[in-house]
């Protein structure tokens, strides 16, 4: 199964299970969890089911397109089921079968991996799912987001699309995966991988990035006062990404790190609080 067929198959599966199919957000982020359809929608009591592909950027993971496993840009397929159904593991297995994994023939393992995002003030418990020792999914029961204990526990299933594709194609080099007949993943992304690695590690201007970080933070505060939650949150995401770029450039010392993370978390928390206030007003 090629990359684009995998996305189509997962969409078909989760649509059948009642998920709203969304698109990834057009702002840089490190994981699908940052998408408002996860970050905000898991707060409060309202049930919510969604699935979407989120392109992710993690500047420190760049390897100039030379590493078969790691890249600073990749795709997550994110599913949120809130509240988490009792048979959620079975549902997940069903989805794997649906995309062509013959579960009975393979070694499937749930290996403890508790998830934490200090920048989002978020924490969850769960596993990495291994297929024949290859990590293909993060499976997490959220416990807390933006420092708030969740009322209805959502289950987050994050498929590493590249990894599942590797497994299905028996091709353990990211860039050699087939995206569609005649075109490889590398054809589409190797060049930008190399360029972004060079930018993040060698060419980015830390002074400029730092200035952006400060100004983005100011915008979050200003826009929250104006009640413009969506725009404020966009700038939280930008803060987070710029911090990751500074980090990749080696411009954040260990001493400064907690302070940076604390500032992003503070901004994210302010957004979450405003969101919950509004939820209360609408009587959710």
């Amino acid at each position: 199964m090629n990359f684009q067929d995998l996305i189509l198959a997962l969409n078909a599966f989760w649509k059948e299970k009642g998920c709203i199919l969304l698109q990834g957000l057009d702002v840089e982020m490190g994981a699908g969890t940052f998408h408002p359809a996860t970050f905000f929608k898991v707060l409060g009591k309202r049930p919510w089911k969604t699935a979407y592909v989120q392109p992710c950027r993690r500047p420190t993971d760049g390897r100039y397109g030379k590493n078969p496993f790691r890249a600073q840009h990749y795709f997550q397929y994110q599913v949120i089921l809130k509240p988490s159904p009792d048979k959620v593991q079975e549902l997940y297995f069903e989805s794997l079968r649906h995309v062509g994994v013959r579960l009975k023939e393979h070694d499937v393992r749930f290996v403890e991996d508790d998830w934490e995002s200090p920048t989002l003030g978020a924490q969850g418990l769960g596993w990495e799912v291994w297929l024949d020792s290859l990590e293909v999914t993060q499976f997490t029961y959220f416990q807390r987001i933006a420092g708030i204990d969740l009322e209805a526990i959502p289950c987050e299933i994050t498929y590493g699309l590249e990894r599942i594709c590797m497994f299905l194609q028996g091709q353990y080099n990211l860039f050699k995966l087939e995206w569609c007949p005649g075109t490889s993943y590398g054809d589409l992304y190797r060049k930008s991988e190399e360029e972004c690695s060079r930018y993040n590690f060698e060419q980015s201007d830390p002074k400029f990035l730092l200035e952006l970080f400060n100004r983005y933070e100011g915008e979050v505060k200003r826009l929250l006062k104006e009640g413009l939650l969506s725009s404020a949150y966009d700038f939280v995401l930008k803060m987070s990404h710029v911090f990751n770029q500074l980090d990749a450039r080696g411009a954040v010392s260990q001493v400064e790190r907690p302070a940076f993370i604390g500032r992003v978390r503070g901004a994210a928390k302010a957004c979450a609080s405003l969101y919950l206030e509004r939820e209360d007003e609408t009587g959710a």
Binding site: P68, H106, R109, D132, S133, L134
Partner: peptide
Amino acid sequence: NGSIVLAKVRKNYEQVLNA
């Protein structure tokens, strides 16, 4: 873990380790 098709699983383990 579990009943598997050994040849397939072995090949996957080997490729993952090599990568």
